[in-house]
């Protein structure tokens, strides 16, 4: 019995490794057709779901296209369905190309806006909770902030779309669904998470250090700036990067607001798309190469967030340091 118990617990622990490995392998396998088709150029490809002729010598393609157009037009009245079906595919083999540049850029930019918005406020909240507020208030506000972190992301999305975005729009103009509103709502969403873990890092500063500084006549701000920040620097940076990782992979809060349009944003308040949103909105009805291209995006997202979280955890937040 003892042996069985030990074996089961060992296997459960090993399951974590197996799961992560199989996520990696199965995403890669599902993405394989797209990886073979588009290679690394996928990352820089700006077309999503655009039909292009398969590479022939250019002149032939142009010639056949022109001929075909002339031929097809009169026939359209008689048998439009057949001519439409045969239209592109008979002589010129077409293929659909997918490139990930737009969702990758959308993901990075929305995360950047979210971080720019959330970072200063989260730092302020963390300082308030760890240093300024009396214990009672700090506890109550702390719980409130943690409750904000517990609200499901889809609620942030809905609230953002119907209540927050119109207000943002009235200030900066542009569209209600845009890179800016998506980034800001994403910022509101990661705010409590970032504040809570930053507060925890700040609280690791030993009281002796703080009291010594106060005894030397330092103001609260000087203690925060010269004692707490330097002491808990690694923890704070790690917390911020962890929040960044969360923002990169967030789906629902962004899905309501980014617009899900496969075009590069011409300005900060025009719509675009991010990797998670592209998956959320296109995965269901996708087939063939499109599914594979979406898996390619998922694979890239997994690797990016894996890297980001690893940096935060291993470099800055080493527990057994």
């Amino acid at each position: 019995m003892e042996k069985l118990f030990k074996t089961v617990s060992f296997m459960s622990a090993t399951l974590v490794m197996i799961l992560l490995a199989s996520i990696f392998i199965s995403l890669f396998n599902s993405a394989k057709p797209a990886i073979e088709e588009f290679g690394f150029g996928f990352i820089a490809g700006k077309e999503w779901g655009v039909e292009v002729p398969i590479e022939n010598p250019v002149s032939t393609v142009v010639a056949t296209t022109a001929e075909k157009k002339v031929e097809v037009k009169p026939a359209e009245n008689d048998n439009s369905l057949e001519s439409m079906l045969g239209g592109g595919n008979d002589d010129i083999p077409m293929r659909t190309i997918f490139g990930g540049f737009i969702p990758i850029v959308g993901t990075l930019l929305s995360t950047l806006i979210a971080m720019a918005f959330a970072l200063p406020i989260a730092m302020g909240i963390a300082v308030f909770l760890a240093e300024i507020a009396p214990k009672q208030i700090s506890n109550v506000v702390g719980i409130a902030i943690e409750l904000l972190a517990a609200i499901p992301s889809i609620i942030f999305g809905m609230w953002g779309l119907f209540y927050f975005a119109p207000i943002v729009q009235s200030f900066v103009g542009g569209y209600q669904v845009s890179l800016l509103t998506a980034g800001l709502v994403l910022g509101v969403m990661i705010l409590p998470f970032m504040a809570a873990i930053t507060r925890d890092s700040m609280r690791t500063t030993p009281d002796v250090l703080k009291e010594s500084a106060y005894a030397l006549g330092a103001t609260k701000f000087e203690v925060i700036k010269d004692i707490i920040f330097p002491y808990s620097k690694a923890g704070i940076i790690g917390s911020v990067i962890l929040a960044l990782g969360r923002a990169l992979g967030e789906t629902m809060a962004v899905a309501f607001l980014i617009g899900s349009v496969f075009s590069l944003p011409s300005s900060i308040n025009s719509p675009t798309v991010s990797i998670p949103v592209a998956m959320a909105n296109s995965f269901g009805e996708a087939t063939g190469m499109k599914t594979s291209a979406l898996f390619y995006l998922a694979f890239l997202l997994f690797i990016i967030s894996f890297a980001v979280i690893s940096i935060a955890k291993f470099y800055f937040l080493r527990k057994d340091k």
Partner: peptide, 10 residues
């Protein structure tokens, strides 16, 4: 911390 949508895809 893995993106939940990636778990969905998996």
């Amino acid at each position: 911390s893995a993106p939940s949508i990636v778990i969905g895809a998996f």
